[in-house]
Simulated assay, not measured.
Amino acid sequence: MTYVKSANRVMEILQLVNVYPRGLTLSEICEKMGMPKSSTHELLHAMEQQNFLQLDDKKYRIGIRVFELGQTASRNLDLLQAIRPHLKWLSSQSSMTTQFGILDNTDVIYLSKIKNHEGIAVESQAGARMPAHATALGKAMLSLLPEEILLANYSSLVFEKFTPNTIGSVSELRDRLKEVRDKKFAEDHEEFTKGVFCISVPVPGIRANTIGAISISMPEEHWKQVEREKIVENLRLAGTRILEDAKTYYGQSSFSN
């Protein structure tokens, strides 16, 4: 049985057993799954050893590890709900679209977004991925990475150009990130979408080994008039409040020093 097929079987078994709170025997699982006893028993034994299943009176039930993961998922959802008031406050202060995301290698994953009617249509949506090198959120987070990790992630990457302003090489990216570190905030000058400008600050330590960032997006006419210092000040304040809430939801022990 291949690793992918085994992983799929594990998830199918968990979903099946979850429907039967009183548990299922090995024979019942094999019958419902259409699987041979030998390979099924191996999977069930491994899942029991890892506490994903528990075996009582020859019946398999959902184990404590699934409960723990469910609690973690619940806290993650709670955190997303906690982020939104801060994004709404930030949007009310600026009349712009606000966003929060995390870094995943060379991508930004957008977790939450508040769209303001006075802002501009921004292509990002909650759950969407965008290339970090082409966004203010991404550059804010990339600026915190150690040089060796940055080079490992980008040395062989083909930089996709979305507009004439998109960063196109590792050397250009390194130069931009130096500017971000000096200013302590990142900007997007029509680098992903024509006519859209953004400012972002990182929110380091949203959880151990996870870097987050918060941003404001605006059209060109607002960009020319906006008080950038005030925007950055509000971004940092909202980021600090989000980090405080993250510590509440995840617990202080989840954070790196």
Rank of each mutant, 00 (worst) to 15 (best):
A46G: 09
Q54D: 12
K58F: 04
R75V: 03
K59V: 10
R75S: 07
M47C: 01
D78Y: 07
D57E: 06
Q49D: 05
I64D: 15
A73R: 11
S74C: 14
Q49R: 06
M47K: 03
E68Y: 08
L77P: 06
Q49L: 08
M47Q: 03
R75E: 03
L69S: 08
D57W: 00
M47A: 00
M47S: 03
K59W: 05
F67D: 12
Q50R: 12
S74E: 15
Y60A: 12
N51L: 05
N76M: 15
F52T: 07
Q71K: 11
R65D: 02
S74V: 14
T72Q: 13
Q50W: 03
S74R: 15
D56Q: 09
R75A: 09
L69T: 04
S74W: 15
F67C: 07
E48Q: 07
K58V: 02
Q49E: 09
N51R: 07
R65K: 09
L53Y: 02
K59M: 08
V66E: 10
E68I: 05
L53V: 06
A46Q: 14
G63N: 01
T72F: 12
R75M: 04
Q71F: 01
L55P: 10
D56S: 04
L55A: 11
R61G: 08
I62K: 02
V66P: 09
R75D: 04
V66R: 07
I64F: 13
Q50H: 09
N51V: 04
K58Y: 06
R65Q: 04
N76A: 15
M47R: 01
R75Q: 09
D57I: 00
A73P: 02
N76Y: 15
E48G: 02
N51K: 06
R75L: 06
F67M: 11
Q50Y: 08
L77E: 14
Q71C: 08
Y60M: 10
S74N: 15
I64S: 15
L69I: 06
K58E: 08
V66S: 13
D56G: 02
N76W: 14
L55Q: 12
Q50C: 04
R61V: 06
Q71V: 06
L55M: 13
D78S: 09
K59D: 04
L69E: 11
